[in-house]
Simulated scan of single mutants.
Amino acid sequence: MSTTARVRVTGFQRFGNRMLEIFHGIGLPVGPMRLLKVRGRTSGREYTNPVAPVEVDGEVYILQAFPGSDWVRNVRAAGEGVLVRGRKARRVGLVEVPPHERGPIVRRFPIQVPMGAGIFVKNGVVPDRRPESFERAARDIPVFRVVPR
């Protein structure tokens, strides 16, 4: 898939995302999911996106599963956001990992978040759920390191 192609979120996925927001809002986090809140680069409005962080060597990373997602452009502009788990929210810095350093990080995603790996396959980011496939596609998967503020 082209890195510039945009993959749209389906109505069913929007519904699931909204349910995740509701569950987190009442203090019931779901699996490894977090909510990432980022200010829009032009609107200034806060947008919320579900993410499944990956931990590698004590560092936490967030990967993009939907090519062309606005949240990535917003993070690049803002350099920060708020990560929410249940009712706990913390402001964090978000530093983009250079493409040549992404391989070992994205390789861990299907191991740590096997349910989430299917979204990458469905969206054409990787051909299958194998860690090797994620590693081969690493240069085209935006990755952000979460830095405490």
Rank of each mutant, 00 (worst) to 15 (best):
T3N: 05
S2H: 05
V125P: 07
V38P: 03
G25Y: 05
S133E: 07
R39M: 04
D57I: 10
P29M: 02
G31D: 13
I111N: 08
A117R: 02
G25I: 13
R129H: 03
L36Q: 06
L28Y: 08
G40F: 04
G124L: 07
V92W: 15
P127K: 00
K88W: 11
L20A: 14
F66W: 12
G31C: 04
P53E: 07
A5G: 06
I111K: 13
Y47A: 13
T42Q: 11
M1F: 00
S69L: 03
H100Q: 12
K37A: 15
D128M: 08
P110F: 05
I22F: 15
V75A: 02
E135N: 00
E46H: 12
D70W: 01
V30H: 06
I119W: 00
P104S: 07
N49M: 02
K37L: 11
L20I: 14
F12N: 02
P67T: 02
G11Q: 03
N17P: 11
L20C: 14
P98D: 10
G118V: 00
A78F: 05
V92Q: 15
V82K: 07
D70T: 04
Y61N: 10
A77N: 04
E101N: 02
P127N: 05
V92D: 15
G81D: 02
F12H: 06
P127I: 06
V56H: 10
D57K: 13
E59K: 14
P110T: 09
V7N: 05
L94M: 08
R87M: 13
T3I: 08
V38I: 10
T3S: 06
P104I: 05
Q13K: 12
G103K: 09
L35T: 02
E96K: 09
V92M: 14
L83M: 09
V113K: 09
V7Y: 12
G79I: 00
G25K: 08
V7A: 10
I105M: 01
R41E: 05
G11E: 08
V126W: 03
V7D: 09
R91W: 02
P99S: 05
A65M: 01
E59F: 02
R129Q: 13
R8G: 02
S69Y: 06
G118K: 07
Q64K: 06
V72F: 01
Q112Y: 09
R91I: 04
F109P: 04
T10D: 13
L94E: 07
V106W: 00
V126H: 03
S2L: 03
P99Y: 01
H24V: 09
Q64F: 00
E80M: 09
V72A: 14
R45L: 11
F15I: 06
T48K: 09
L63C: 10
E135Y: 00
V113M: 14
Q112R: 09
I62C: 08
G124M: 07
P110C: 08
K37M: 13
N17H: 15
F120T: 03
F109I: 05
P50V: 04
T42K: 11
E132T: 05
R136E: 15
A77Y: 01
V9I: 15
G25A: 09
P67K: 02
E135F: 00
Q112P: 10
I111M: 11
I26H: 03
G86I: 06
V9W: 14
R76T: 11
V54Y: 10
P104K: 06
P110N: 06
Y47H: 15
P104F: 10
V72M: 01
V51W: 12
R39F: 00
V82Q: 12
A117Q: 02
G31T: 05
D70F: 01
S69R: 07
V60S: 13
F23M: 15
R39C: 05
